[in-house]
Design a protein around this nucleic acid. Sequence first.
DNA 1: CGGAAACTTCCTACTACTAGGTAGGGCCCC
DNA 2: GGGGCCCTACCTAGTAGTAGGAAGTTTCCG
Lengths: 191, 191
Amino acid sequence: MNTRTALLDSAERAARQRGYDAFSYADLARDVGIRKASIHHHFPAKADLALSLIERYADRFFETLGEIDSTHRHAAEKLRAYVALYRDALVEGTQLCLCVAMSAGRDSLAEPVLDRLNQFHEKSAAWLTGVFEESLDDQTVSGVSDPNAEARATLALVEGAQLVARAAKNTSLFDAATAAFAARLSAPKPH
Amino acid sequence: MNTRTALLDSAERAARQRGYDAFSYADLARDVGIRKASIHHHFPAKADLALSLIERYADRFFETLGEIDSTHRHAAEKLRAYVALYRDALVEGTQLCLCVAMSAGRDSLAEPVLDRLNQFHEKSAAWLTGVFEESLDDQTVSGVSDPNAEARATLALVEGAQLVARAAKNTSLFDAATAAFAARLSAPKPH
DNA sequence: CGGAAACTTCCTACTACTAGGTAGGGCCCC
DNA sequence: GGGGCCCTACCTAGTAGTAGGAAGTTTCCG
């Protein structure tokens, strides 16, 4: 179907698997089935592609966080869903969150792309801070004193866990890294 | 001085600043002041350079961990020093730990380099597990129940914190991400 | 309605440049 | 004289990006 979408899909897969620097217009062309030059019609320069890529990714991501908000009541449940999001993104230890992949190779990124990247981190931290504040009320997460510090730590934890797990191509390393955090989340009440 | 060492120094700086994929033999040659072809005398292929790079880095790193072991008595002090190690490696938010940088671009890494990388992670986790086990005795770290899980979490935390801080070129984001962890470490006893 | 202009999408063919790596030779010192 | 170290000159294969044109589709107007 839509060539532009197919290009974005292919580019996202490649960037998350091999890093932003490690895919070329030639790779994309081969994958999508058009000629290299035709890609320039949709994305004049690679920086344009990168920007579209991160915008689409961020939109989807925060839409998902919104869904988590509306389908889970307790802070612990939301955090479990958040961690699961990063775990699922690993896809058998081969793919990173696009933002982790881009953070890694950040020196070859254009300014507007970098802005979006930091915006992504800040928005994530804000959402997490909100959830940890809820946890102060519903008491479903143990040992919370500073919601903002917890949010920053959780963000770093899931991103780092992805990195370590991907390096070894082993999803269970992600689980091992997040186990201590998961233990702080109260079990869903049976009723 | 030693050309080989100068090459390793330059390569390490470049890899940690811009990522492993983002520096070339031409960059190195310019930086060190010899011709590109001459580098091949010291490191026939780039994979040879990468291997030497990570071996030297890991040797230094674990030597430093040994020093931490011998200069600090309590688990909390050791962990504070460990986190500081990653914080200092950031160098004003521009450089990553070499292993974080390599984990990110891992698809362009040769097998032996990847082995060393995972070896680094495993050895780090083992050291951390040991320290958390000590903490069960000396009670200087709060809320420890599973030393191995704590070790994996701490490794992911500092690596993730580096990534996030470097993306924003802002060391204080590293501090924010590790603040909650630091709060669990008992203050050094005044005497 | 018919037809021309305009736009979209893709093509072939090319540019200028960079990558890692090789061949072979010169120089200096043990 | 042989080895360590570095050089010039070159190779192949890849990179992003451009020029210009061929189709098909849409839009607009008499």
